[in-house]
């Protein structure tokens, strides 16, 4: 079964685009800087949960970003989306930038999050172990920085180019627009003082990290864990920044074990 696509206009006037699949307790998945991909990990979660995967706003219509100045605006945007869909007390799962937003949401609205899963999440900063500066990197080097094997089946779609050259331009514009809409909230250093709000999070939290994450190094799992209190770390071997796509079975197993 394919995910159903829900398109909404929120009371703010902003649009929402949400993929939905599965039955069960609600689970919201927030994607990272490479965009939304309905993948095998979400299929696994959808076997026991009703999974909602919203698209990051402003990635298709950059004018929307004029109404979203800061992470706090984005938190309210997602709250609007959740309320519009009558989603109460969901599990929040966030990867990369989506992990930062999920953590922010759980700090702003601690009563509205049942459990929190952060996968390679951005949002914290250590000067001695900086988050990699992907935006200053030669683009040819980015895939091998983000994942262990860019040609592996689970992740190839992240970097692949369409066979028909006529579609390459559109895909490039879409990818660049997605990066721009994410960077809108975190340029040039992905630290917006999340650390000082983490004490507000009450949801039990799982931090899932690829052992070889070269974008947001593993030490950040410990950083989150220390600031959160009620949290545990699950390390996925043989994975970089996309453990849910590089080692789907292991990451899904850890996630589901935590949720049950």
């Amino acid at each position: 079964m394919k995910a159903e696509r829900i398109e909404l206009t929120l009371k703010s006037g902003l649009k929402a685009d949400v993929l939905k699949k599965g039955e069960g307790a609600p689970l919201v998945f927030l994607h990272g800087r490479l965009g939304r991909h309905w993948d095998a990990y979400l299929d696994e979660l959808a076997k026991t949960h009703c999974v909602y995967a919203p698209l990051h706003p402003g990635s298709q219509d950059a004018d929307e970003l004029l109404l979203l100045d800061a992470v706090s605006d984005l938190v309210l945007y997602y709250d609007d989306v959740l309320r519009a869909l009558n989603i109460e007390q969901p599990v929040m799962v966030g990867h990369c930038f989506g992990g930062m937003v999920a953590a922010e949401y759980a700090a702003y609205f601690p009563d509205r999050v049942r459990k929190l899963v952060l996968v390679g999440a951005l949002g914290l900063w250590r000067d001695d172990v900086p988050v990699a500066d992907i935006d200053s990197m030669n683009p040819d080097l980015i895939p091998a920085t983000l994942v262990n094997d860019p040609r592996a089946a689970g992740v190839a779609q992240l970097f692949a180019m369409p066979a028909d050259p006529a579609f390459i331009g559109d895909l490039m514009v879409a990818r660049v627009s997605m990066t721009a809409a994410v960077n809108h909230f975190i340029w040039p250093i992905p630290d917006r003082d999340l650390r000082r709000r983490l004490y507000r999070v009450t949801a039990p939290t799982l931090l899932v990290w690829g052992r070889d994450d070269r974008f947001v190094p593993l030490v950040y799992a410990t950083e989150f864990s220390t600031s959160l209190g009620n949290a545990k770390v699950g390390v996925v071997d043989n994975a970089g920044h996309f453990p849910h796509m590089e080692q789907t079975r292991e990451t899904a197993a850890q996630t589901l074990a935590f949720l049950h």
Binding site: A62, D135, S177, N183, H184
Partner: peptide, 17 residues
């Protein structure tokens, strides 16, 4: 370096197209 010259978000989608 091209990553400095082409920064996502600097050019609009219209200009990119």
């Amino acid at each position: 370096a091209k990553q400095f010259a082409m920064v996502p978000g600097y050019s609009t989608a219209k200009s990119m197209k």
